[in-house]
């Protein structure tokens, strides 16, 4: 897909894609009976906007050296990535049904053997620094490709994230973007360290940064358009709701890892359709 064609997608179309991603995620989680579904639902809108409007990636040529790179630094959001890759036609719905099952090629935390997955993540704090290296290499090659790294608010507690943020600004990486998913949760519950003010931190580190409701498509689209005019590196701070689109999951106190009874998944699907 060309950049121009992708940019023509309307907000309504992107919302439709986000809905489709959520459906796929719920089906995957239902098959497995559990998963990091809250994070996946929360990042769905941003992934729809990035993959179907911002990135230049030809699903038929995933080894194109000039493809844009998307690095998912939070490996446990894999469920969202697999939904995107199915939406792009890289993975099939049959493959999605193997999500996180024993021996599956679609593990709970991403591995770079999966087509369309650029890095192994799961040990947190690994994405942004590798994004810096990729951006440096692509710039050296005078490639038009850009690098977009997704990371989370919990990951801001990893020192390596800030080493990378510092380096990116110092190297003036115009071809590097960060999507900082602030969903307010981590393994032990609500964020155990106060990471605010997140936006100011990125700006203080020398990044052009904006903050948006990460579950509002129009805001996302506007943020990308506004930031594009600013010097890089660029960060979009996303305020997202874990479980976004499915009220029962949104309301859960412990949303980091969701496990529900087999018979409940169909009700969650209905909730999603009602919301949509």
């Amino acid at each position: 897909m060309t950049r121009a064609a992708a940019a023509e997608r309307t907000v309504a179309e992107l919302q439709g894609i986000a809905m489709s991603l959520r459906r796929r995620m719920l089906r995957m989680a239902a098959h497995k009976g559990e998963g990091y579904i809250a994070q996946g639902l929360g990042i769905a809108d941003a992934l729809a906007a990035v993959y179907f409007r911002e990135l230049s990636i030809d699903p038929g040529r995933l080894d194109d050296p000039n493809r844009d790179r998307f690095l998912l630094s939070t490996g446990h959001y894999s469920i969202a990535m697999y939904a995107v890759l199915a939406e792009l036609g890289v993975l099939t719905d049959e493959q999605l049904e193997t999500y996180a099952l024993n021996g599956s090629a679609l593990p709970m935390s991403t591995f770079d053997e999966t087509p369309g997955i650029e890095i192994i993540s799961g040990s947190l704090g690994h994405g942004l620094g590798q994004g810096v290296g990729m951006a440096l290499g692509l710039r050296l090659d005078e490639s038009p490709a850009k690098v977009v790294v997704e990371l989370s608010d919990g990951e801001l507690q990893e020192g390596s994230t800030w080493e990378a943020a510092m380096a990116a600004a110092s190297f003036r990486l115009d071809n590097l973007w960060a999507l900082v998913d602030c969903n307010g949760i981590q393994a032990d519950g609500p964020l155990v360290l106060d990471m605010e003010p997140v936006l100011d931190k990125w700006r203080a580190f020398g990044w052009s940064a904006v903050e948006v409701n990460g579950n509002a498509m129009q805001e996302l689209v506007d943020a990308f358009d506004a930031l594009r005019k600013e010097p890089g590196p660029r960060a979009v701070v996303l305020r997202t709701t874990p479980g976004s689109g499915v009220p029962t999951i949104e309301r859960r106190d412990r949303a980091h890892f969701v496990r529900v009874n087999d018979d409940e998944w169909s009700r969650l699907m209905e909730e999603l359709e009602d919301r949509g």
Binding site: E118, G129, Q130, G133, G137, E163, A164, S170
Partner: peptide
């Protein structure tokens, strides 16, 4: 132009080297 100093940050240096390698360099 092919030399990158990550500063006093070994984690960053190795991440940068890995990223460079993943876009086709030998770092």
């Amino acid at each position: 132009e092919r030399f990158f100093n990550a500063g006093m940050a070994e984690q960053s240096a190795i991440m940068i080297a890995a990223g460079l390698a993943k876009v086709g360099k030998v770092a």
